[in-house]
Design a binder for these strands. Structure first.
Lengths: 228, 228
DNA sequence: TAGATTGTTAATCGATTAACAATC
DNA sequence: TAGATTGTTAATCGATTAACAATC
């Protein structure tokens, strides 16, 4: 049962990047923007942009481009940015605090309505406009307020338990910043955001660069990894 | 557009996830682990894991699996986690502070050796073990210390200028958390980490869920409808 | 009209996975 | 040996992009 016959994953990921570019264009007073120009924001050719947008509707004018305002509105609608999305956040460390206070999320409709931690010394602490509550209340609050989304910024050891509590309360979408895999019912959508994983890919590239910089004079022939 | 024909992009991204799983296995005292088990950590089948690992070397034992310790060591080597990677971080807001203090990075070889901001009230402030310096010193410090990596956590408006200064100092790899596209020489590797972009994809899914939940509202269940 | 750019098709490119002989 | 799991091949699946008639 493949229920995901919607937009392609890479396409969905590019739409917010086009949107970001559109907002900039609007701010600059630009009225029309071409697919080629939109594509530059995501490092793809214009044909890719047109393909991506063809999932939504026909909106461009041949010879002219896309009307920036109306395309932005279309994307806001499709991405659901116009709807308020209430979320809880668990784990008030440095990262949790940063996310709770991140100014860019408001424009995208995210409302973090409750904060939790398991450290009693943090209970009652004010982060932005919200007070930190004991995690023991998590499930109950989620259920009572009918929250659909949870953000996890606890250490890896605690993440699974927190996720379970969230799901028990009815949460359906989890944004997981903890460096671990969560085992949850299939119906729950999990997006993992392990920054160390991203760092590791950069680490690989940096190391290659150093190596090729060292070997710049030595061997003109590109050979495979010599560390056998 | 002929680029390096190294490991495939999706494969490279999965390796750190396997690595994370391996560390866990090692901690639990597991000696051997199968490709199938490793694959579960990244939601891919065993055949995908074996394909990914075949880029590196032959390491598994048919009928047995992979020796956890030696495979972890191989990944550390390939990903360059064993090498120290010195970086500068610019933008000491909440996110910048969180990244500067993120405990998970050390194990991956990242060393943030200098912090910068353009707010005089932050100069001299201590974040972890480092003092915040004025951004006017950025290029110079990068050049003198021979730093290869820069982390950008400034607002979008300031990001391009900061990136230019980094590149002028000799930086080759940039981890960009600002919500904008950076225009830089091709030789510079840029990894964008716009959290709002990720949020937008989640927003899309949440909205679809709400819609289909409403559509399935034929059932007479006792539900409050004032929430939104 | 002449120039520009769209939406869509078809070809290409790349990534995933099932299958299986090899082998521990 | 019998059972398990590897590395690799071949088939499949999906995403990207060049090309072009349509059209503003």
């Amino acid at each position: 049962m493949s229920r995901k016959t919607g937009i392609a994953r890479p396409s969905l990921h590019r739409l917010p990047i086009y949107y970001r570019r559109l907002r900039q264009a609007i701010e600059e007073g630009v009225e029309y923007i071409s697919s080629e120009e939109l594509g530059q924001s995501a490092d793809v050719p214009g044909s890719q942009v047109r393909k991506d947008l063809s999932y939504l509707a026909e909106y461009g004018r041949p010879g002219v481009g896309y009307e920036a305002r109306s395309l932005a509105a279309l994307l806001e609608e499709f991405l659901g940015l116009v709807n308020d999305k209430e979320a809880v956040l668990v784990g008030i460390g440095n990262l949790g605090r940063a996310l709770a206070l991140y100014p860019g999320f408001r424009r995208y409709g995210l409302q973090i309505v409750a904060l939790f931690d398991n450290d009693p010394s943090k209970f009652g602490q004010l982060v932005g406009e919200r007070v930190v509550q004991p995690v023991s209340r998590l499930t109950d609050v989620v259920r009572r307020l009918n929250i659909l989304m949870g953000i996890i910024t606890v250490p890896a050891e605690a993440a699974q338990e927190v996720a379970n509590m969230m799901v028990e309360g009815g949460i359906q979408v989890i944004w997981n910043f903890a460096p671990c895999k969560l085992e949850l019912p299939e119906s729950v959508l999990v997006k993992n955001e392990d920054l160390a994983v991203e760092l590791a890919t950069l680490s690989h590239h940096i190391t290659r660069r150093k190596l090729s910089a060292q070997a710049a004079d030595a061997e003109p022939k590109a050979e495979e990894n010599g560390g056998s």
